[in-house]
Design a protein around this nucleic acid. Sequence first.
DNA 1: CCTAATTTTAGTACTAGCTACTACGACCAG
DNA 2: CTGGTCGTAGTAGCTAGTACTAAAATTAGG
Lengths: 186, 186
Amino acid sequence: MAYVKKKIRQQLLIEQVKEKPFLTDEELAKLLQVSIQTIRLDRLELGIPELRERIRKMAEHAQTKVKSIEGREVIGELIDLELGKSGISLLRITDDMVFAKSQVARGHYVFSQANSLALAIIDAPMAVTGVANLKYKVPVHVGDKLIAKAEIIRQRGNKYFVWVKTRNETQEVFRAKFIMVSWDEK
Amino acid sequence: MAYVKKKIRQQLLIEQVKEKPFLTDEELAKLLQVSIQTIRLDRLELGIPELRERIRKMAEHAQTKVKSIEGREVIGELIDLELGKSGISLLRITDDMVFAKSQVARGHYVFSQANSLALAIIDAPMAVTGVANLKYKVPVHVGDKLIAKAEIIRQRGNKYFVWVKTRNETQEVFRAKFIMVSWDEK
DNA sequence: CCTAATTTTAGTACTAGCTACTACGACCAG
DNA sequence: CTGGTCGTAGTAGCTAGTACTAAAATTAGG
């Protein structure tokens, strides 16, 4: 009987910590109606770190997250790249990229993948987007793996005409035409 | 002389804490070649909270930040909104939005502001982007305040035609035409 | 150069929120 | 009734501090 109780309590503990990571052992003990020592033992058994560790990890995670967004020149993962010709990138849609209500991906993530890929395949030190024509064909959902294929179809002076087609597992979801403009440092 | 030194040291302290918030007083003392007590006094004077407080605030911030990104339907700050008609949003370009090399803003930030604003002004429970035509007129730099003005110019069934014009302080930098598609839950 | 003020360092007592450990009593099953 | 699991209790020790007092060092002013 007590054996079962323990498991239930530990389950509750896991839930509590997940929901409210800022609770001290003392507060957890009061919540679960046991002594502090029991909480500590449970944490030890379950491998739950102490309050300070939990908070520190959250803060560290938040920091590295910010940095990784900063340093990322390409949205998504570059799978293949032939500079001056074509490129392929992959982006997995996570739940923070979609609208809470509809679970449909925000348009700018799909755009960002295509746009940054279009930029990446251009063989020039610096370039910016000049013009873009986009067509969203099918809504994209959480879990979808978006594969964007970009191709330079024409080059005229410092202007590059790039086509990007994005597919999920089953169909084409997005299409874009970019005119990218490059320039050398003056 | 020492009066100046103190100010310099406190300035260094502020920078250090800003850059690496995970340093203890002891580590800071070693870095700045003074005793722990001096660091504590400086923190007291400067109103810098202790390590644990700093970390806790970061973690709390990270938590609310995750939620606010989820909840953030609009990139930038909504300044004005007339549902079904028009809207204005402001986005300040920070250094993590630009290319390190050229200091020019990545195209997708400008797009995201416009796209999310176009979406926000539509008076429907759910909508997605269908088609977009973009024109980047002038490169945008760090510090620029982008003011995007969106206007619904035509509505045909569940299709909304939206124009967005984005200016910085001096000129129009971006222009977009969107066709947004709305739908009711089925 | 000496004194006064400022700045820095040293040290103590106390705190939260723990870990790691030992010890004891309750309960329950075979 | 004896062994094993559980929960509880309590101690020592830790980190990274606060809050305080006091002394030493430095510096500026006269």
